[in-house]
Design a protein around this nucleic acid. Structure first.
Lengths: 400, 400
DNA sequence: GGCAATAATTTACGACCAAAATCAAACTTG
DNA sequence: CAAGTTTGATTTTGGTCGTAAATTATTGCC
């Protein structure tokens, strides 16, 4: 407890710098409420440890009088971390420096979708080694690894209760990976990591309470409350996709009925479409979906009604989230352009009509079309957070 | 910022004492992580200020050797606060001491249900004066007042956006009351205050994340995240009752369709029942409900089916909460015994079947049948929290 | 070139916490 | 029943830390 106060100060200063990107000491003092003297002392310490660096005089100095302010920023070269995402038959890797800039990437195609945990370890390692060598680095340049997986994951304990990519249940994957790779590993539900990507690099910067929704083969949700990912009592991510929108409704992959996912996920759309359309000539799910979207755009009433219902169900589920959470901001984050219909103006309108009316603006809804690497960058953000925590604790330990 | 650390220590020590009820200094030191020396110094300060007191040797001293431990507790007489709840045509008042023990109560019947804000002020005052004089005290014995109202309330700003008891919208009620009564006033949504009552006095003691649901004429929800009431971005409580459980479903009082409330609230049950039953001989809502419950218990199929549907809708809504929040504990809190059917084993079973399955126990569901004063005690708990905060800040101010 | 303005650092000092020592109040034991 | 033991609480002591004030640094302005 002896260095408690200093510790808190360091954390606060460091995270303020990271959130700001670039910031001068004066502003740091003003924002954190810490006195300039202490800011000097803390930043000196962080510079000495190599975690932050000066970037030279601020841009806007010529507008001011007096001694020019010197901006500080996180020192990108301080640490390199990897973010990985296990998707359907692929492992995507992003190498990212301490500032969050991408310094390398790789993608490993897999021959199937489900693996035993023991089979997965060498695959992760291979993907990682590939990314590292392509970037001209070695494995020991990495300070930590973040991993995102679909399914229910207990981030605190690093246990994967269930994942579509794993054929086993209750796998202590984090422990296994840490033993195998010999570096800190952080695992979380992929939707949570997208939320973290938004918080670190996207629309969620500086927003205290927001919600991120992703639509892929399933529907994922990440909740940020008070600047932190909310994980619930059992450490599992929020299961928006299995929110019930219809009593005894459509059958879901999870075995229950009426889940939102059973109305808006790709398999749900395709099984409806299959009633009237023969998709025999289309091989992949993506191709089938593509043709369904095109049919709707061409005016096919059946296809349109499928999307229409999915959109209304989605609006209802989303309105429920708003009614329960009253977030400041909702981010619809994803890469699938063919899902545009879900983000259409009518859907957003449906949400607005379904939330409790007060004389204040409803939460802002933003649509964020990320590229393929979003997931992996989210995982990297999680790794950065964990590695930064370790670094700050190291300083505290050395000082004591 | 100079007494930052001491301030945090004081807060921590005081809240630990309050949570524990009675606790010796050694245990305080162990629980808070603060050194015994500092605990001595802080507790001495709090005793000097009259906020806590020694209660003599602990009960279990004869089981131990060595110097007997001396328990500390919050000094009840330190402050008296009032909690008030505005319900349909009544104002309930609870006078509570700093420990939370009831020292007086009163109830004022009103001649109608909706008032202008300016009309409400003298009514609140009259109810308060009645309670105070009945308890043999004077108004200036009160250190603060907590008020609970149905509707959407911004607790931070003390604004009532809308309430069934107010004929105006966007009323700065807190400001008005503080000016009128000349003491600190704290206002919040009634469901949030029930959550606080559970946190302070009920099943929620020591639980970090839980959810409280109340069913009255509407359906209310209070969310506790990380030991704090979650209020959302716009400061309004969570609107569980207006969560949608059916696309284009039953019409709700709020004007929208498919709200949970439109299936489980008393008016919803009665309007269904009215289709086949003539309630002309029953005057009040409560009497009508009573006869409906009796009919169901007597085996009337129509009545049973009404309750059955309400129960299934309730289970669905509740399961959604679990899927989204994954709380440690859910408390169904209320006073209406006739709503037993909603808490029946089938309903709980329905919830368990509708949540995402992982290999861990589902959240515990507890039913808490409070008396009439629950709401007012919740309001009092809120007032205690606010008044304690003021007291601790005063100490910090004096010290500086 | 000196003055004003603003940023950052250094200095002086008091607040605070924890470890160690001490005091206090019981029980145990011979 | 007196000395020792055990455990709780307080006091003493040493050192860390943060802030205010003073100082130094660096530029713009006249």
């Amino acid at each position: 407890m002896v260095t408690d106060q200093r510790d808190a100060g360091r954390r606060l200063v460091f995270s303020t710098i990271r959130k700001a990107g670039r910031i001068a000491r004066v502003d740091l003092a003003r924002e954190t409420g810490i006195s300039p003297a202490t800011v000097t002392s803390i930043t000196a310490e962080l510079i000495r440890e190599g975690l932050i660096e000066e970037t030279g005089p601020s841009q806007d100095n010529d507008l001011r009088r007096g001694r020019p302010r010197v901006d500080l920023k996180v020192r990108g070269a301080a640490r390199i971390v990897a973010g990985m995402k296990l998707s359907h038959q692929t492992i995507a890797v992003a190498l990212v420096d301490f500032e969050g800039t991408l310094v390398g990437e790789a993608c490993l195609e897999l021959d199937r979708a489900r693996f035993k945990a023991a089979e997965l370890l060498p695959l992760f390692r291979r993907a990682l080694e590939h990314a590292v060598s392509t970037a001209g680095m070695t494995m020991d340049a990495l300070a930590g690894i973040g991993i995102g997986m679909a399914g229910t994951v207990d981030a605190a304990h690093g246990t994967v209760y269930w994942s579509p990519g794993l054929s086993e249940r209750n796998v202590p994957l984090r422990e296994m990976l840490m033993a195998d790779l010999d570096m800190p590993v952080f695992i979380d539900n992929d939707a949570n990591l997208v939320a973290m990507a938004e918080q670190y690099f996207g629309h969620g910067r500086g927003v205290s309470d927001f919600i991120v929704l992703t639509i892929e083969s399933g529907v994922g949700m990440g909740i940020v409350v008070n600047h932190e990912i909310y994980r619930g009592a059992r450490g599992c991510g929020a299961e928006f996709g299995h929110t019930k929108v219809q009593l005894d409704g459509a059958l879901c992959r999870c075995g229950q009925r009426g889940c939102l996912e059973a109305y808006v996920a790709d398999y749900a759309l395709l099984r409806e479409a299959a009633t009237t359309t023969d998709f025999a000539d289309r091989a992949t799910t993506a191709q089938k979906l593509q043709s369904l979207v095109e049919a709707a755009q061409a005016g096919d009433e059946t296809a349109k009604s499928i999307f229409d219902r999915a959109g209304r169900m989605f609006a209802m589920g989303l309105a429920n989230i708003v009614n329960i959470f009253d977030p400041e901001l909702i981010i619809l984050s994803g890469e699938r352009m063919q899902f545009d219909y879900l983000y259409a103006e009518d859907v957003l309108d449906g949400i607005r009509k379904s939330i409790v009316q007060i004389d204040m603006a409803p939460p802002e809804v933003r649509i964020h079309k990320w590229g393929d690497l979003m997931w992996a960058k989210g995982a990297a953000a999680y790794a950065i957070e964990g590695v930064a925590e370790i670094a700050l604790q190291d300083i505290a330990g050395n000082a004591a």
